[in-house]
């Protein structure tokens, strides 16, 4: 889920109009990802405060007992104002949570912000716990988690069990984001099964499905010529596919993808192998957003028609973007999640 680094790198920039002035977009003073990537678990499931940005990003495709599709998002972002700093209220660490539930008709979103030094939000690793306010993603270890969130209109309480191992994107977890070499550390757990209750305005709904957790951290901004991205995570009959395209201001794209077999073998694909083309647009919140796509990875014989479960999956948060569940037909069938930014 490399592309999401852009979201957080953009966060301070986009938000500066609303008051986040003073956060630079350079890496000055922060640590930067380096090759080869070496991970130490469970420590690396926890925060890396010397990097500017980091997230725990979980999306899930769900179905209720009648077969109705739902989508769910639970995200915790961390950003640091400065590479080092004080404790308590003086801590430079800030946290942001996004939670959403998508039904074929409705899309519920809520956001939380927290200061890092006072215990309102954070991540610990043994046992694992990531939280902001009353939202949490926690369990004895990274493979067995309970997840809760609530907003003014919805809440959920989910249990997750990992049926496979963590997978690494790019070069063993070192994920390049542009031709200029910007990169992040990036790994995923795409094999969670998930079960639990959605509390919606019309009542509680029991759902099951599968979930995909992304972990990523970095300090580097986007290339100056990159305007946004379209990111796909797909769970198909015979494997899983993560792919994104970064849109550049000259109309060209930088793409990247990872094919994950059902037993966890990964193949990384460099720029150009993965292709995604909009097929249809929806008017969402006054913007034209592509909600039907053709997605191809020719080397794997993948040629898919992808469309949004609910075209109105707009995230009206501090940094607005589109994120929602998708349904897949074509050479393979399946479900997945789509994130699109930069369609301002």
């Amino acid at each position: 889920m490399n592309v999401r680094i852009l979201l957080l790198l953009l966060w301070p920039v986009a938000a500066s109009a609303q008051g986040f002035a003073g956060l630079g977009t350079s890496t000055d003073g922060f640590a930067t990802p380096e090759r080869p990537a070496v991970f130490d678990f469970s420590v690396d499931h926890g925060p890396h405060p010397d990097y500017r940005i980091e997230w725990w990003y979980l999306t899930a495709n769900l179905q209720d007992d009648d077969g109705t599709h739902y989508g769910l998002q639970w995200t915790l972002f961390r950003t640091a104002l400065t590479p080092d700093g004080g404790d308590g209220w003086s801590s430079p660490q800030l946290w942001m949570g996004h939670a959403a539930v998508t039904t074929p008709i409705d899309h519920y979103v809520t956001e939380r912000l927290a200061r890092g030094g006072i215990g309102q939000a954070g991540v610990t690793t043994a046992p694992f716990e990531a939280w902001i306010d009353d939202w949490q993603l926690s369990g004895p270890d990274f493979d067995n988690l309970n997840m809760t969130a609530s907003g003014p209109e919805f809440a959920y309480d989910m249990d997750l069990i990992a049926l496979g191992d963590i997978v690494f994107h790019g070069d063993d977890g070192y994920s390049v984001k542009s031709a200029d070499g910007q990169a992040s550390y990036y790994y995923s757990q795409p094999f969670y099964t998930i079960e639990g209750m959605l509390t919606l305005p019309d009542g509680d709904v029991h759902v099951t499905g599968n979930a995909w957790l992304d972990r990523e951290w970095s300090s580097q901004p986007l290339s100056e010529n990159q305007t946004g991205w379209d990111w796909f995570s797909l769970s198909l009959d015979d494997g899983k596919l993560m792919g994104f395209r970064l849109r550049q201001d000259d109309g060209s794209y930088y793409t990247s993808a990872t094919w994950i077999t059902l037993d966890g073998e990964t193949t990384a694909y460099a720029d150009g192998a993965f292709q995604a083309e909009p097929q249809g647009y929806s008017n969402v919140n006054g913007r034209q957003i592509p909600t039907q796509w053709n997605v191809r990875l020719d080397e794997r014989g993948v040629d898919l028609d992808v469309y949004a479960l609910n075209p109105n999956s707009w995230m009206e948060t501090s940094v607005p973007y589109w994120e929602g569940p998708i349904l897949v037909e074509g050479s393979h069938t399946g479900v997945g999640y789509l994130e699109m930014t930069g369609y301002e």
């Binding site: 938000a15 609303q18 008051g19 986040f20 002035a21 003073g22 956060l23 104002l81 400065t82 700093g85 004080g86 209220w89 003086s90 801590s91 430079p92 800030l94 912000l113 927290a114 200061r115």
Partner: peptide, 23 residues
């Protein structure tokens, strides 16, 4: 970060999320 919207006067709100203000 947590104060309900409309809390501080405009001039304060514009600046309220700067690094200086917070830390």
């Amino acid at each position: 970060l947590t104060s309900p919207s409309g809390m501080a006067p405009m001039g304060v709100r514009d600046e309220s999320l700067s690094t200086d203000v917070l830390i």
